[in-house]
Design a protein around this nucleic acid. Structure first.
Lengths: 193, 193
DNA sequence: GATAAAATTGAGCGATCGTTCAAATTGAGT
DNA sequence: ACTCAATTTGAACGATCGCTCAATTTTATC
């Protein structure tokens, strides 16, 4: 027998992601969430325990989706660097669709939260590390197949790329000129060579 | 006759900056501010009109201070690129002192706020533009005095640098390894040549 | 020192916050 | 159909939100 619960957990998390991503943790009220996912407070608290609990679950799903997208870029591309390039383009496009909040949700979370909610901060930092690890693996491959100057340290390059992606998505928030943002991606990847 | 008001306006704004920068707009309550600047609500509202009004004034002062710091870096340096390098180092150090919020306050603001508070968003975007203009002027000089390959477009390079600075400060939030952050600055400036 | 203007105070407004829980509803096993 | 556990509901809790304003204190002028 299939799941018959009125609210599919993944759908709820997805909707909560949309809202949290756009408005941030503090500016999203439980009443906003109740309306948006069409659940009453008791149900939400029975499922997720607290606003923080729901948010933490949202962060995990978001990071999983990011890792999955990077994987998809790899399979759709013929080389490691091309995969990274595709991933960057996707991230910036996602950044621009009005439904999303713009920046990487993990960065936005780290930026917003303080020592209150320390556990959420730590969670977000760890999840960012996972994505960076994915970059490092790809850059290792790029180095191995000669697509990248093998004298460069892949781990350091991964940090460099992670930083640049954060920068581009932040910059895109403040500057609506799509062409200029695309030039930034261009500049990043030409600086790799 | 000198100003004898109990609360110097600039001091109040500076304290408010510290609090807003660290906690963000939404997470900073008026009661937090009342305690921190030691003023009662009536006084604050008489001076600044609203929480938004105070925040907008804080943003302006923050941007002015940034521009002034860039100017100071220019005077303390012997070349345009060296001035930029000093400015980057300063920004990242400021980023790391625990009193401040870490990221550039303007980026953090744009990241946090939504269409509610649209005027604050617009304000922050414009102020960011001013800093970028400062970069462009410096890069123009660097190009003129041969410190920079004159085939490169200074405006585009200014956007590139602005993006990188955003990226580094965001990255520094998620990664506490000072050495790795310094390597990032290294990488950015070596990619300019 | 009397007086008027300016600045500051703090109790408290209505609204909203995250959260709880007794009651109502639903779904599976018999 | 009946039962019982699981799920969902929504009114309501105390706390806190941004903010107001009559009352008080401070300051400037004479």
């Amino acid at each position: 027998m299939v799941k018959t619960a009125k609210h599919n957990r993944q759908e709820v998390i997805q909707k909560a992601t949309d809202l949290f991503w756009e408005k941030g943790f503090h500016a999203t009220s439980m009443r906003n969430l109740q309306d948006f996912v069409d659940m009453r407070p008791g149900s939400i608290y029975a499922s997720f325990g607290s606003k923080e609990g729901l948010f933490k679950e949202v962060l995990k799903c978001y990071a999983n989706a990011s890792a999955a997208r990077l994987e998809a870029c790899i399979e759709a591309s013929s080389s490691p660097l091309e995969a990274l390039r595709t991933f960057f383009n996707l991230a910036v496009i996602d950044c621009r669709e009005p439904s999303s909040g713009g920046m990487c949700m993990l960065v936005k979370t780290i930026s917003e939260l303080t020592d209150e909610n320390a556990d959420l901060q730590i969670e977000a930092k760890q999840l960012l590390g996972i994505v960076e690890d994915g970059f490092a693996v790809l850059l290792d491959q790029a180095s191995a197949c000669g697509e990248l100057d093998s004298s460069k340290d892949p781990r350091r390059l991964a940090r460099f790329l992670q930083m640049q992606l954060m920068g581009i998505r932040a910059y895109a928030l403040a500057n609506d000129e799509t062409e200029q943002v695309n030039e930034l991606i261009e500049d990043v990847f030409s600086s790799l060579r």
